[in-house]
Design a protein around this nucleic acid. Structure first.
Lengths: 171, 171
DNA sequence: AATAAATTGACTTACTTTGACCATCATGAT
DNA sequence: ATCATGATGGTCAAAGTAAGTCAATTTATT
């Protein structure tokens, strides 16, 4: 079995075993545990823990740094994947974005408030700038994508500021 | 948990617990309490209690010296006007936008969810595109402005004082 | 053989902690 | 009043810690 696969499994087992949709890891510890270059961890994250796979990651450098992996709520991955890839895509107009948001709200996939905010963020006003419409549409797609990912990972999001009851793992 | 985070929390808890928007501290006492260099206190202040975070600090040297931390409060209209004109302006970086959103959430001017969404919409990822950073910052300001106006227009909520904690600096 | 996936390591960036040295203030002595 | 002194806080740069990037190389797959 490839190392990357092993690491992937290891992380998933960890989340499974703790019934946790979120875990914090130390990149260097993991790397040392698997006797590999730290950057290999990044490779695993970027090939196996992407939004398309149903995960969102974030990190912090410096002393006390960490890598955080959040699993998006079940059933959402396919839905999200469809949304992101088919509906949003690489480029989307303000009109299409607005329609999409309203549809999602109607279907209760997102709240009305979220929809309003998304529409506001992708409106022609918000994106008025001296750049070609084509570029704007690309940016709009990215903005929308970012917001959808944010919403998708929310249910699993712990009430943050609280002194992390997030499980930090000794590897 | 990082020492700086611990100290930050300690100070916030202190203000919370005393229902005070203002608090005086002794730098050396704090440092001794946390077994750290006194200058670490300054580090915490300069990274977590800046005006951008919604605080203003002042101090007095010499015998009987102190460090004073004041949490800034404004009325809703003032707040919005200030936000749009002073804080957002015509151009804003991703970092500034993020801090601003978190500050608003912390003060319950907006919900934590809205803050997350705004941060997502103005993140470097959302605005990654082959255009100059300066242009991005202008666009970011417009997007943020649009979203803030959207939230401001929503009927005011009866401020549920749920201890909505906000969060850790996403990266 | 050609292409794709995985591995590695040198270099970069970000955040934190510490310590040496500087500035200011209150107070008491002159 | 003036000055000396000790008590505070401020600054800044170096060291420490930890993650990110990128491209060269190696190892599968097709």
């Amino acid at each position: 079995m490839r190392l990357s696969d092993t690491i992937e499994q290891f992380i998933k087992d960890l989340m499974q075993q703790e019934q946790q949709a979120e875990i914090d890891l130390k990149r260097n510890e993991l790397a040392e545990y698997f006797h590999c270059a730290p950057s290999q961890i990044n490779y695993v994250l970027s090939t196996r823990f992407t939004p398309d796979h149903g995960y969102v990651t974030s990190s912090q450098r410096g002393g006390g740094g960490y890598i955080r992996i959040v699993r998006i709520v079940r059933s959402a991955p396919e839905q999200l994947s469809y949304l992101l890839n088919e509906r949003v895509g690489d480029s989307i107009s303000a009109g299409e974005a607005q329609i999409l948001c309203m549809q999602l709200a109607e279907r209760k996939a997102i709240t009305a408030k979220d929809a309003q905010l998304m529409i506001a963020a992708t409106s022609p006003t918000a994106l008025s700038a001296p750049i070609p419409e084509a570029v704007k549409n690309v940016m709009r797609a990215r903005i929308l994508r970012s917001m959808l990912l944010c919403v998708a990972q929310r249910p699993a999001q712990p009430a943050a500021d609280a002194p992390s009851e997030v499980n930090r793992h000794e590897v």
